[in-house]
C-alpha cells in the first residue's frame, strides 16, 4: 500500500492503495466516482475512458502509480451540469440505449474535439474505434460528435 495524491475533476484527493491498482478502481471504489465503467480490464472496450491531461486514456490499464500530478477528468467532471457540447449533443440525438458504454464514448469524443474541432467521419471512427457499444448506437454517436463540433465552433 502507498499514498497517492490525485487531481481528479479539479479536486485533490489522497488514497492509500496498492500502487498497481488501476485508476479505474480507484475512481470507482475509493473516490466514489462510479461513472467510469469496467468493461474488459485490458483496454479493449473503452468503457473506462477518462482524460489524463486532456488525452483519452483507458483507466483500467493505468496503474495509479503512473499518474503523478497529471490532472484526471472523469465523466462526472466533464461539465458541472452535463452541459458540455458533447453531452448536449448526446441528449439531442438521444444516443444511449443501455447507456453503459456512453460515459467512455463521451470522454473519447470530447478528447477528440479538443484537438480536432472539425472531425471528418474517418477522424471520428479512428478516435472512437476503441470504444465498444454492444447496443450498436454507433451511427448516433457519429451524428452527435458532428453536432457537438458544430455547436462548439459556432
Amino acid at each position: 500500500m502507498a499514498k497517492f495524491t490525485l487531481h481528479v475533476n479539479g479536486n485533490e484527493q489522497t488514497v492509500d492503495v496498492d500502487p498497481a491498482t488501476p485508476v479505474l478502481w480507484v475512481l470507482r471504489e475509493h473516490l466514489d466516482l462510479p461513472g467510469t465503467k469496467y468493461g474488459c480490464g485490458i483496454g479493449q472496450c473503452g468503457a473506462c475512458t477518462v482524460h489524463v491531461e486532456g488525452a483519452a486514456m483507458r483507466s483500467c490499464s493505468l496503474p495509479v502509480s503512473s499518474i503523478g500530478d497529471r490532472p484526471i477528468t472523469t465523466i462526472e467532471g466533464l461539465s458541472e451540469h452535463g452541459t458540455h457540447p458533447v453531452q448536449q449533443a448526446w441528449l439531442d440525438h438521444d444516443v444511449p440505449q443501455c447507456g453503459y458504454c456512453q460515459a467512455g464514448q463521451i470522454m473519447s469524443a470530447s478528447a477528440l474535439l479538443s484537438h480536432t474541432p472539425d472531425p471528418s467521419d474517418a477522424d471520428i471512427d479512428a478516435a472512437l474505434q476503441g470504444n465498444l457499444c454492444r447496443c450498436g448506437t454507433y451511427l448516433r454517436i457519429r451524428s452527435a460528435v458532428k453536432s457537438a463540433a458544430r455547436s462548439a465552433n459556432s
Binding site: L33, P34, K37, I75, G82, L91, V95, G99, Q102
Partner: peptide, 23 residues
C-alpha cells in the same frame, strides 16, 4: 410522437444507475 429517453441525462453525466454501481 418521439419523446426523449427519460434517463438520458443521468446516463451522460455518469450517475450510478447500474447494478455494478450499487453500494
Amino acid at each position: 410522437t418521439s419523446r426523449k429517453n427519460v434517463e438520458a441525462k443521468n446516463i451522460i453525466t455518469g450517475k450510478p444507475l447500474f447494478g455494478i454501481d450499487y453500494r
